[in-house]
Amino acid sequence: APHAMGLGFREVACDDPDVEQAALAAVDYLNQHLQNGFRHILNQVDKVKVWFRRPFGVVFELELDTLETTCHVLDPTPLANCSVRQLVEHAVEGDCDFHVLKQDGQFTVIHAQCHSNPDSAEDVRKVCPNCGLLTSFNDSSVVNTVNAALNAFNAQNNGSYFKLVEISRAQNTPPPVSTFVEFVVAATDCTAQGATDPAKCNLLAEKQYGFCKASLVKKLDDEELSVACRVFQKQPQPANPAPAVDQAAPPVPPANPPASLV
């Protein structure tokens, strides 16, 4: 690669093994700090610059392209076992900027900023004219489907009463409109049968989350509700919750690494 002398950084191949290691460490960091939604997987290294750090180490300045997987951030499934959300399912991509320090063979993320975008409706229509499209969480059919599914789940459940924590994904199909939702619930200190006033039910100190998928399919003169929930193991109470990757606020840059690094 041409030594970009004087620029303070070196350009290397985006598929260089070290770059790939840095990119994988960055995506791990992202998934550990996402507070909601679905985990992401590395799809492509768009750009990379390698800055030399005094007295030692290098910083990889990366632009990465990620794709959403079907695993929720609370789902303990190993990322390698998570499927990538396909185009026909209305895929979501992430665009991330990372600075990853490599020192003594270790990769450490020192700057992260990401935002995600769903595929366009036109592109989904191209591959699947009748597939569902992502829709707003406060769409009335979404709210109705989530409430009906949660009530049905609690009615079938003879343990704790579960409360809604997050609507993670919602899609409507073209008419006859059917609604597909994915949402997170958590166990409370009420029993499912005894919860007369859910507002008085509190989440357990030792959180127990569940991930639910539900659909409300319109039939000719009827509608069919189906719901399936996976309840995860109880989570030990966090000593101090991990800092979030704040996708909105500009992250605090560590004293402009490129300049200081040069």
Binding site: C14, Q44, D46, K47, L67, L87, D119
Partner: peptide, 27 residues
């Protein structure tokens, strides 16, 4: 003896460094 070389030594096409390979698909 004049040896007709081919076109001026075509420079190796610059190895494209980035973007890297697409692991799944592009949106």
């Amino acid at each position: 003896k004049v040896v007709h070389s081919g076109p001026a030594g075509a420079a190796d096409p610059a190895v494209r460094l980035c973007p890297g390979r697409v692991r799944y698909f592009r949106i």
